[in-house]
Structure formats: structure tokens, C-alpha cells
């Protein structure tokens, strides 16, 4: 018995030292596989650098100009336009707020259709999930451009673009929260004679509400960032002025706007953090 245990211990020690040896000098097959992996990765990286135009003389000839631009950005200017910039910034903040709110409201019914727990017809549930995935596949700016063509210039197009993309994201996040919730409370509600709606309101909603709020607040922060550039295609917000000034090389004014954007984004982040602590009471 004692001998056996000793034997086992020494065998264990042997495999452990073999592991260590493998770590220091891995077996040949492993080494070859690793080498092949790194060679392929390096080749792909080199090719991608070439294909995306990074390997070019322009990289060096452009550097002095880039330096000039950065120097000009060190001195923010255009303070006489401050009211205009601030109004555009408020537009940006409002777009993010409304877009997120709209998406969150629409995402709740869609999430119920996307979740296994609440929507039992598997094929349709899978279809709804793919549908919400597909909304996220096109960038905000593409949707913004489409809405600008359809309903004209202005922040409303940006709001709709944010709402459409985030409807997909939030429906996915909400439905994952619903699927992760325990089914027992809603089964209990149904067993006690509650309807489908009762079982969602009393059995599922209390469990998933913190997750839903947290995901929505996160998207609100992220949308404030996205909304700053939607103006590039004319969909409202400070992006319009920023792109305009950058295109005519007014780097001082651009710098002022970038500072304003950073302040706004940081304020929204801390407001969202405050709400998260108040409403969810975690972190």
C-alpha cells in the first residue's frame, strides 16, 4: 500500500518534470506546428500591410505634414463659434439618448421572440435571432446615410440609425439575459393560473431587469461616442462641423470640438455610472 502510493507519487513527479521539459523544449511536432503557425501569421500580416497600402513611401513623406497638423491642434481656436459647437454637441447627446431609448423599447418585444424561454417555436425563434444579428451587420454610418436619403438631413436620421443598429444589439443582449434567467418563477406563476404575460411580468422581468438596465446604459455610453461622427453623412450632431473643419484644414477649431466631445463623453459616462450604481446597486 505504502509502496503503491510512493510509486504513484514518483510517477506523478515524472509526468510533472516531463511537462516542464516540454515547456522548455517542446517535442518536435509541436515545435514545427508552432513554427508553421507563426510563419503563416507573419506572411498574412505582411500581405495585409501591402494590400492596405501601409508599405508606401507616403508614410514617410506624410509624417512632417502630420506633425504640422498636430502642432496646429495644440492651440484650440474658433471660440467665437462656441455656441454653434455646443448646440451641435447637445444634438449629439440628444441623438444618443433618444436612439438608445427607442432601441431599448423596441428591443423588449423582439427579445421575447428571440429567447428560447419565452418563445417556444424553435425555427421562428432562430429566425428572429438571425434577424437581430443582421441589423448589427451594417455600420451606424451606413444606416445614417440611408435614412438621410429617405427623410432628409438632420439629427432625426441619426436617431433612427442608432435605433435600428441597437435594436439588434439590445435584442440579442436582452434575450441572452432572458435565457440565462431561472425558469422556476415563471413556471410557478403559470402553475398558479397566470397567463403567459403574467409569467413574463412576475417570473422573468424581475430577474432580468438589472441586466437589461446595465446593457442599455452601456449602449447609451457607446452611442454617445458613435453619435459624434454621424454628422459626417449629414445625420446631425457635431460630426458635421468637425468633418467640415477638418476638410478645410482648420485644425485649431477641430481641436476645440474634439475637446468638447471628450468632455461630453466623459460626462455621459459618469452620469451612466451614477445611474448604474443607483438603479442596480452593483460596482
Amino acid at each position: 500500500m505504502a509502496f503503491n502510493e510512493q510509486n504513484k507519487a514518483s510517477a506523478e513527479q515524472e509526468t510533472r518534470s516531463q511537462d516542464l521539459l516540454n515547456l522548455v523544449s517542446p517535442p518536435r511536432a509541436d515545435r514545427l506546428r508552432r513554427l508553421a503557425f507563426w510563419l503563416v501569421a507573419a506572411a498574412l500580416l505582411g500581405y495585409s500591410a501591402w494590400a492596405s497600402g501601409v508599405i508606401s513611401l507616403k508614410l514617410f513623406t506624410g509624417l512632417p505634414k502630420l506633425g504640422d497638423a498636430f502642432l496646429m491642434m495644440l492651440v484650440p481656436s474658433g471660440f467665437q463659434h462656441l455656441p454653434e459647437f455646443l448646440w451641435a454637441l447637445m444634438e449629439t447627446v440628444a441623438m444618443a439618448f433618444l436612439g438608445t431609448l427607442l432601441a431599448g423599447l423596441m428591443a423588449i418585444p423582439l427579445a421575447l421572440l428571440c429567447a428560447r424561454t419565452t418563445f417556444p417555436i424553435r425555427i421562428l425563434q432562430f429566425g428572429f435571432r438571425r434577424f437581430s444579428d443582421s441589423l448589427r451587420s451594417l455600420d451606424y454610418l451606413i444606416w445614417a446615410l440611408i435614412f438621410v436619403r429617405a427623410i432628409g438631413l438632420g439629427p432625426f436620421a441619426g436617431i433612427l440609425a442608432i435605433a435600428v443598429v441597437d435594436l439588434g444589439t439590445l435584442a440579442k443582449l436582452y434575450s441572452e439575459a432572458i435565457d440565462n434567467a431561472s425558469r422556476k418563477p415563471s413556471e410557478g406563476v403559470q402553475a398558479a393560473g397566470g397567463t403567459w404575460l403574467d409569467s413574463i411580468r412576475l417570473g422573468i422581468l424581475p430577474q432580468v431587469l438589472p441586466n437589461i438596465l446595465s446593457a442599455t446604459l452601456y449602449m447609451w455610453e457607446s452611442n454617445t461616442r458613435s453619435a459624434t461622427i454621424l454628422g459626417i453623412v449629414g445625420a446631425g450632431g457635431i460630426g458635421y462641423q468637425l468633418a467640415d473643419r477638418l476638410r478645410v484644414y482648420e485644425f485649431g477649431q477641430a481641436s476645440l470640438m474634439i475637446i468638447l466631445i471628450i468632455i461630453a463623453v466623459a460626462s455621459i459616462d459618469s452620469l451612466s455610472g451614477f445611474l448604474r450604481r443607483r438603479l442596480i446597486g452593483r460596482q
Binding site: 502630420l66 497638423a69 454610418l141 459626417i232 468633418a243 477638418l246 476638410r247 477641430a254
Partner: peptide, 11 residues
């Protein structure tokens, strides 16, 4: 995209 606009000036 703002970085891109800035780099457009240089490159």
C-alpha cells in the same frame, strides 16, 4: 473616422 480625416490631410 476623425483620426482618418486628420490622416487624410497628411497621407
Amino acid at each position: 473616422l476623425v483620426w482618418a480625416l486628420l490622416f487624410l490631410f497628411a497621407f
